[in-house]
Design a protein around this nucleic acid. Structure first.
Length: 405
RNA sequence: GUGGCCGUAGCUCAGCCUGGUAGAGCGCCUGGUUGUGGUCCAGGAAGUCGCGGGUUCGAGUCCCGUCGGUCACCCCA
């Protein structure tokens, strides 16, 4: 049989996997700082959840889902996005009042693989439910922004827009539809088809955007509450000193979005696929699923592209490599002591010659090589060509200090 | 779903146009040198040429199909 992973999936091994470990660690940290507890929902959901939640006319639902019939005859789907599942879980738990959740895990879309886009991909996200205030929007946007900054994304840009709500959007959609209809000849067949189905998405098309000068603006149609909400979000972002640009053609691909829509873009990415993540407000989603009115706002970030964009060389997964001139059993004990005090250390388990151990240390590119010669002798710690001698007990602290510098 | 390019040793690739029985660099292994690994020298192991079919006396090389990768479109995080 072939050892190749399925199309659009990938094996992630060291040293590349170390970048993921670091990025996931930072995510744990940042989402916790903003008060988002972990929420874990199934990777597998009833197909109906996404059809109703994400929208039956969306690209995701019509073409990109991994859907199959299980042995009980139910139509099941590997989750293509996170929000619908989290909201379902919230409703299932009888959730009430303000609620927050952060998630991280694999998602699936049946698409043509491309730079930073695989069929199985990893997303980080948060959802903030039952708070209608712009404070929730701004907090969510800020969290994603700070995280991406910290993880090292080059040329991070935040784009925001508003999509109105059911009381004002229909008038805008109608105006846009008339505008597009007059230009039908200029549009690609796909976009022409969208005029009836979902004219907003035509604005998102790369090929058609150049033909569309001065289309109607959502901001001219906003009802008073939506306008005030949008101003509130922008004001808070200003206060938090988060720079953003407004883009009237920023439309989310999924049906459930209302009011705020935003996207994080990595301008440093070489590929055409430079959206690192996006999100928005989805006040109507709960009701689409048959639940009570539940406002919400959240985002999802694509970890694959984030790591591409950060372009950082992963650090070593070890603090030190232990070279021993003693019996291997003694090395087991020494390594155990170091590990229990927080040092990430590894050693040769087969009692191979010292030269071979040094070769392995070099190959692993560890920052520190520890040479252990026996319980009565000092440990030699070598880092970047310099050698220090110390007692075994001093090693963890010494390693920690040299790691931080 | 559509189109371009690509698939040869563990890795990066040459060989393909103009068919004739497979190569380089790096890595790996062994020996020597060395300041107990990183340098240098010598030697060595290693390839279903993605897979299947066709043309041919003969296919890595030409043709068809297929799978995979990559980039772009579509779309999306």
């Amino acid at each position: 049989m072939s050892f190749r992973p399925p199309k659009g999936t990938d094996d992630l091994l060291a040293p590349r996997s170390q970048s993921w470990r670091e990025a996931l660690g930072l995510w744990e940290d940042w989402s916790a700082r903003y008060g988002y507890p972990l929420v874990m929902t199934p990777v597998l959901e009833a197909t109906e959840l996404f059809e109703r939640g994400v929208g039956e006319t969306t690209e995701v639902v019509t073409k990109q889902m991994f859907t199959f019939t299980d042995r009980g005859g139910r139509s099941m789907t590997l989750r293509p996005e996170g929000t619908a599942g989290v909201v379902r879980a919230f409703l299932a738990s009888g959730g009430q009042g303000p609620w927050k959740g952060a998630y991280s895990g694999p998602f699936f879309r049946y698409e043509q693989p491309q730079g930073g886009r695989r069929r199985q991909f990893w997303q980080l996200g948060v959802e903030y439910l039952n708070v209608e205030s712009p404070v929730a929007d701004a907090e969510v946007i800020e969290l994603g922004y700070r995280y991406l900054e910290t993880v090292g994304v080059a040329d991070l840009e935040l784009v925001v827009n508003t999509l109105g709500d059911p009381s004002c959007r229909p008038a805008y959609v109608e105006a846009l539809r008339r505008y597009l209809d007059e230009r039908r000849q200029l549009l690609s067949p796909e976009s022409a088809r969208l005029i009836e189905l979902n004219p907003l998405r035509v604005l998102d098309s790369k090929t058609d955007r150049p033909h569309l000068d001065d289309p109607p603006r959502m901001t001219d149609f906003l009802c008073e509450p939506c306008a005030r909400h949008y101003d509130g979000v922008k004001h808070l972002l200003d206060t938090l000193e988060i720079t953003y640009t407004e883009d009237l053609s920023l439309v989310r691909g999924l049906d459930y979005y209302t009011r705020t829509a935003f996207e994080y873009v990595g301008r440093g990415l070489a590929t055409a696929q430079n959206a690192l993540g996006g999100g928005g407000r989805y006040d109507g989603l709960s009701e689409l699923l048959g639940g009570p009115p539940t406002p919400g706002v959240g985002f999802a970030l694509g970890l694959d592209r984030i790591i591409l964009s950060a372009g950082k060389e992963p650090g070593s997964h070890l603090d030190a490599y232990l070279v021993y001139e003693t019996d291997v059993t003694e090395a087991v004990v020494v390594a155990s002591r170091l590990r229990r005090t927080g040092t990430r250390v590894d050693f040769d388990g087969e009692g191979r010659p010292v030269e071979a151990q040094f070769r392995m240390a070099a190959r692993l590119d560890v920052p520190v090589v520890l040479v252990y010669r026996g319980s009565d002798l000092p440990v030699e710690a070598r880092a970047s060509g310099v050698s220090h001698e110390m007692g075994l007990d001093e090693v963890p602290e010494w390693v920690r200090r040299s790691r931080d510098t």
